[in-house]
């Protein structure tokens, strides 16, 4: 059921808990293992705003196991306000609504249902900004 695997990712998945490099200012999410030469102090936790814009997008019609109910669904590379570029689904939108550069905001949604006897996996998606 991959319970532990999903549980480990909660802070990043649920609320875009990322990290910022104290030396370079680089921001990334989800957090990443330490590289050679880095110490636990190299990166500090940073909660991201969830605001960003579409860098690119695609609507998938052939999808992996477990994602059939959502299909067709849009995926995107989103450039976050803090600079990080992340991959996520877009939700609450139709393909015709989308364009590169469009502002989007983070919402927490079901990513996948691991089955009637498994956990529901929640995580970030992005959608057109609700005013």
């Amino acid at each position: 059921m991959d319970i532990a695997r999903h549980w480990r990712g909660h802070p990043a998945r649920y609320r875009l808990q990322g990290e910022r490099n104290r030396n370079t200012g680089e921001v990334r999410v989800p957090p990443h293992p330490l590289a050679l030469g880095e110490t636990p102090d190299t990166w500090e936790p940073l909660k991201l705003s969830g605001r960003g814009e579409i860098y690119s997008f695609s609507v998938l019609r052939q999808v992996p196991e477990g994602y059939e109910l959502f299909a067709p669904y849009p995926i995107a590379l989103v450039r976050l306000e803090e600079g990080a570029l992340i991959t996520a689904q877009l939700t609450d939108c139709a393909e015709a609504d989308l364009e590169i550069g469009m502002p989007v905001e983070m919402v927490t949604r079901q990513l996948v249902d691991t089955g009637a006897d498994g956990v529901l996996v929640y995580g970030y998606k992005f959608r057109p900004v609700v005013q």
Partner: peptide, 13 residues
């Protein structure tokens, strides 16, 4: 609810 929504996701927002 959209296919990715439930009581939890709506509560969060």
């Amino acid at each position: 609810p959209g296919p990715d929504e439930d009581t939890v996701t709506m509560s969060i927002e």
